[in-house]
Amino acid sequence: MNIFRLSGDMLHLISFLVLMYRMRGQRSCRGVSLKSQILFLIVFCCRYLDLFFSFVSLYNTMMKIFFISATATIVYWMLTKYRSSYDMDNDKLHGDGSFMGHLPPHGVLGYIIVPCFLLALIWNEGFEAFEILWAFSIYLEAVAILPQLFMLQKTKEGEAFTLLYIFCVGAYRGLYIINWIYRYFTEKHYWQPLVWVSGVVQTLLYADFFYYYWIALRDGAKFQLPG
């Protein structure tokens, strides 16, 4: 554990709290992508299957349980008490529509879930169920934020807490990269290219967002995506 990894984890943890605080405070989930949240739930459920058979530290175990339960709570809220404020029209991917309003969304399944699973079958750290699901979760996490970013792209501007949420998740990924560089130079056998490549791709997806978020903060202006 180093300061970069710890800060990254804390930002990740804060991101859930920001989102939940916002939804409860405004009694609304407007601007939040249900698709991204469901994808994150799948990510955590697949990756943390090892809760049942491997123990790293109490810290890791507690965080894993928190990530799964917080995301499950967010998804549950979006499907129940805040359902009426869910902005389904802006949470559509190209290719959705065949299953109008029903889950799982056609576009997400075809463009995101299936490709990630196929990639996991090809590039993994062992051809066994857990390893394939683990690799799948790594790839899926890399692109899980896409529906949320698309939603932001469609609405052009986001509500402050939603932006803060995206910022926290993006910053957490950025800090993980610094953590990997640090580990690479300080640990003897630290080598995980699959995670590094996916992590870098994932972080790059936030680059655009970060740029406009920073501009808005710097100028004290409203966050607005171009054209």
Partner: peptide
């Protein structure tokens, strides 16, 4: 072992 070590992150 090393495999476990690779999965010590979240």
């Amino acid at each position: 072992d090393e495999d476990d070590k690779a999965k010590d992150e979240l």
